[in-house]
Design a binder for these strands. Structure first.
Length: 429
RNA sequence: GGGGAUAUGGUGAAGCGGUUAUCACAGCUCUCUGUGGCAGAGCGAUCACGAGUUCGAAUCUCGUUAUCCCCCCCA
């Protein structure tokens, strides 16, 4: 990391710059996303970074870590409490309701690729401002929607060139059957309070489900024997889950039933899933996660409307691509021609000439700031162009230009008005 | 909230008690005043910050800050 002069300004903790040399990954990923999602009928939407804090309180749940300690909030001069969005779903649902999208043909299929903000400890694959792809299908409660979303998620990772990921999946039921499960869990853990970590003692009161997610050894030990949601699902939820799995079987998406998987956000119902590497599943290795949220839209003031979706961390995708040495094409086409100019008059004429190459669809480069032929040829060499065009005082007067083949060093003087055609002709050979 | 590591020109490194703080690459300047895979010559760091130990500190000690990493949690 670059050190700083004492007075030099520095990026805010957890924020990172995406430098030019990184952009090829972003462009590559974005293209794959657009191609796949638009084929499956998803439309892109962009919503504001700032929302009212209450939106997330209602959607994400006040006891979640995200709301309890990670959300960025600010107070406006007028006294409103705003928040930088920590996740995308709440904002998309808000936009869906506010713009009357509920009258569009359902399901409404949306996606966005935007920055999210969480005040968390930065570390590998984790930033305070990070980009997520968020995909949502609103207005269709059927299992086919869940299966389609999971299938697409899996195919998207494949299209990035990533290998070795499994779908971990579970059903956490709904408002009809989950209460009985929660009661059973509470009864179960109440008898084992001594073994639970302090966090989990608290979770026992606030949100028992989260105990299942705890990584403390003793807690994990206690969880092993805990009741499973699967045994508490009512008929509708059980059937829904069963059919999702049947879809996945048919589509040959490898999945692992994880009876204790829950999610960090409170709005989920029924299907929940994550994509996790088969090996080396570290804590930051979840690339993508999501689930169904059939109550969220009501909670935010809409009509009873089902929804399902997932989010993917772009920075983590890039990290994984680098680990797996995925080849990503370079940005932009390679320049074919370098225009060397010498002196004032040629320099003035160089700009229109440069433009005529652009119009002809030929990638050209030049360095108008440099004057010596030596340094310009050096740059031309480094760029690996096929031709250097040398345009000096003499040539400017004669209305000619020198065409130099970089490989052979062979030069030829060409009439200026013919140069674009000549280069075009030689490039075809 | 807990733990570990690191901090030397733009980048990557060397130096581990006394050097004009070294090297490579990149950058910039000048020269050569029209020809490219090493042209020449220069420029650029008070060694993160602060205090202490010492005749003397980039090198030792303490503190601060920042970054990276791990746990927790998440995408």
């Amino acid at each position: 990391m670059p050190k700083l002069k004492s007075k030099q300004i520095q990026s805010v903790r957890g924020m990172h710059d995406i430098l030019p040399e990184e952009q090829k990954y972003w462009r590559y990923i974005q293209k794959k996303i657009e191609g796949l999602l638009e084929y499956y009928g998803f439309e892109r939407i962009s919503t504001p970074v700032l929302e009212s804090a209450d939106l997330f309180n209602r959607a994400v749940g006040e006891t979640s870590d995200i709301m309890a300690k990670e959300i960025y909030t600010l107070k406006t001069k007028g006294g409103d409490i705003l928040a930088l969005r920590p996740e995308a779903t709440a904002g998309l649902v808000r936009a869906y309701l506010e713009n009357g999208m509920n009258v569009r043909p359902h399901p409404v299929k949306l996606y966005c690729i935007d920055p999210m903000f969480r005040h968390d400890e930065p570390q590998a694959g984790r930033y305070r401002q990070f980009y997520q792809l968020d995909v949502e299908t609103i207005g269709d409660g059927s299992e086919a929607v869940d299966a389609e979303l999971i299938f697409m998620a899996y195919k998207l990772l494949e299209s990035f060139g990533l290998k070795g990921y499994d779908v971990h999946i579970n059903s956490i039921g709904d408002q009809n059957c989950r209460p009985a499960y929660i009661k059973a869990l509470k009864d179960y853990f109440r008898n084992r309070t001594k073994k639970l970590c302090n966090n989990c003692k608290n979770r026992l009161k606030e949100n028992v489900l989260r105990i299942l997610d705890c990584k403390e050894e003793d807690c994990k030990e206690s969880v092993k024997e805990a009741p499973q949601m699967m045994d508490f699902l009512d008929e509708a939820c059980r059937l829904h889950f069963k059919r999702v799995l049947e879809f996945l079987d048919e589509a040959e998406v490898p999945y692992i039933l994880d009876p204790y998987m829950v999610r960090g956000l409170d709005y989920y119902t029924r299907t929940v899933f994550e994509l996790i590497p088969t090996e080396n599943a570290g804590s930051q290795s979840t690339l993508l996660a999501g689930g169904r949220y059939d109550r969220l839209i009501e909670q935010l003031g809409g009509a009873k409307t089902p929804g399902s979706g997932w989010a993917m961390g772009i920075e983590r995708i890039i990290l994984a691509m680098k680990e797996q040495n995925v080849h990503v094409p370079e940005m932009g086409p390679k320049p074919k021609v370098f225009l060397v100019q010498l002196g004032e008059a040629p320099k003035r004429k160089a700009l229109p000439l440069f433009e005529s190459f652009r119009k002809a669809g030929i990638e050209a480069k030049s360095s108008l700031g440099r004057d010596s032929i030596k340094s310009q040829l050096r740059i031309a060499h480094r760029l690996g162009v096929r031709f250097a065009l040398i345009f000096g005082q003499k040539e400017a007067l004669d209305g000619t230009i020198i065409l130099r083949e970089m490989d052979t060093g062979v030069q030829e003087t060409i009439l200026l008005e013919r140069i674009v055609d000549e280069v075009k002709k030689r490039l075809k050979q």
